[in-house]
């Protein structure tokens, strides 16, 4: 079972863009990825699979639970939110700005084999963890061997 990023414009990304991305990845931190161009900032996401669940871990440091929403519609899971710069910091004299701020939205097509009504999301230490339980049919089953 595979969970894949939903990239509606995938076919429009030219080979040149992919080459640029390779160069960026190799020579330094990519500022924007082709599929990110609509957003100023996008959180890093890991997707992994265990025996029972598909787990999505997203890094949203400094954001509170209320700044992010997780929704599921038509088998598409969408993470969206806004990382805001604190008000008092706006008037300050900045010496260094490496953190990124702004709105983001990312969507993932769910494999049909998860149970959308049993999805759980928890937030701790800047990591949003979404647990998608697999449906019973796709879980690995042990088949007992009988000796005759």
């Amino acid at each position: 079972m595979a969970i894949t990023r939903w990239r509606p414009f995938r076919d429009l990304i030219s080979i040149q863009d992919e080459m640029n991305r390779l160069f960026d990845d190799f020579f330094g931190r990519p500022v924007t990825r082709p599929e990110w161009t609509e957003a100023a900032w996008c959180p890093c996401v890991d997707v992994s699979e265990t025996k029972d669940n598909v787990i999505i871990n997203t890094e949203i440091p400094g954001m509170s639970k209320d700044d992010v929403t997780v929704s599921i519609q038509d088998n598409v899971l969408t993470l969206s939110g806004e990382k805001k710069q604190e008000k008092e910091e706006k008037d300050a004299n900045y010496h260094r700005v490496e953190r990124s701020y702004g709105s983001f939205s990312r969507s993932f097509t769910l494999p049909t084999s998860v149970q959308p009504d049993k999805v759980k999301a928890t937030y701790k230490d800047g990591i949003l963890r979404i647990t998608l339980p697999k449906s019973e049919e796709v879980k690995p089953k042990q088949i007992p061997i009988t000796v005759e």
Binding site: P61, N93, R99
Partner: peptide, 16 residues
């Protein structure tokens, strides 16, 4: 991020 105000400096580091 590092910024300076009238009263001091603030360093904020993202450690997710």
């Amino acid at each position: 991020d590092i910024f300076e105000t009238k009263d001091g400096f603030v360093i904020s580091a993202e450690l997710p």
